[in-house]
Amino acid sequence: MGEDYASVAEQFVESYHAAAKAAFCSRSDRSQASSIVGPLYRENSVLVKLRGDSGDEIDGIPPAVGPAAIVKMLGDNVYPYDEMEQELCVNHAVPQADGTIIVMVTGQTTCYLFIAPAIFAELFVLKQDSGSYYIAHQVCSDVPYDESVFDAIRKNRG
């Protein structure tokens, strides 16, 4: 692969998390989410959200396809970034022969509502399009310390 795929992956992860933070910063105003996060996806992009200690349960909803559905799913499932801190721990990148880059990110999220940090993992499949990359596939998995804490947060968000 001609490009430095590890640098592309690192820049992507930084950009993605900065965009998500800007898009989902507060509980009340997420009106800009589509214009901030949406361009990272294409109409055939897919997001799958996994939950559970084993990481193998789909979160009761089907995968989201396309930017609008993905932004909606992310907005429904993301805690306001102004109430939490996210630490990215590991970022692995694997290049493919066709120029695709597979990126694995793990980390932890802390919030005043959490008893202990919540561990998360994200897998991104980045495809090239007109000299840049977009998210073709994304799998997110959260492993909460205590599921009742997450249920209480969801209930309070109304």
Rank of each mutant, 00 (worst) to 15 (best):
D82T: 09
A118N: 08
C89Q: 15
M84H: 02
L50H: 04
A64I: 01
A68P: 00
M73T: 03
V71I: 13
V78H: 08
P62Y: 08
T106K: 05
K72W: 03
G75E: 13
S54N: 13
Q128K: 12
E122I: 03
P80A: 13
S54H: 10
I102P: 00
C111Y: 01
F114C: 06
P67C: 14
D56G: 09
G66M: 07
N91K: 11
A69M: 10
G107M: 07
F114P: 01
D98R: 04
I119L: 05
D76K: 12
E87S: 07
P67F: 09
A69G: 07
L126H: 02
I58N: 11
Q138F: 03
S141A: 14
F120W: 15
Q86L: 12
Y81L: 09
Q86F: 03
A68N: 09
V48T: 15
V65E: 09
G99D: 08
K127E: 13
D98T: 06
Y134Q: 07
G131W: 13
V125C: 04
D53L: 15
Q96G: 07
E57G: 02
I61P: 00
N77D: 15
P62G: 15
G52V: 06
E85T: 09
V48L: 12
G55R: 08
I70R: 00
P95C: 10
G66K: 04
V90W: 03
V105W: 00
N91F: 04
N77Y: 09
P117Q: 10
C89L: 15
D59V: 05
L88Y: 02
T109P: 01
K127F: 02
K127N: 10
A136H: 04
Y79G: 02
I101V: 14
P67W: 05
K49W: 07
A118P: 00
P95V: 02
A116H: 13
N77A: 14
P62I: 06
Y112Q: 14
A118V: 05
E87G: 03
S130G: 14
Y133I: 05
D76M: 15
G75A: 13
H137K: 04
D53T: 09
D76F: 06
I101K: 01
T100L: 10
T110Y: 04
F114T: 03
R51T: 09
Y81K: 10
V94Y: 11
G55Y: 04
G107L: 02
E83S: 06
V65P: 00
V78Y: 09
G75Y: 06
P80N: 10
Y134D: 07
V48E: 08
V125F: 03
M104E: 11
G131D: 15
D129I: 09
A116C: 10
P67T: 08
I115G: 09
L113M: 14
Q128S: 11
I58Y: 06
V78N: 11
L113K: 12
Y81R: 11
L123Y: 02
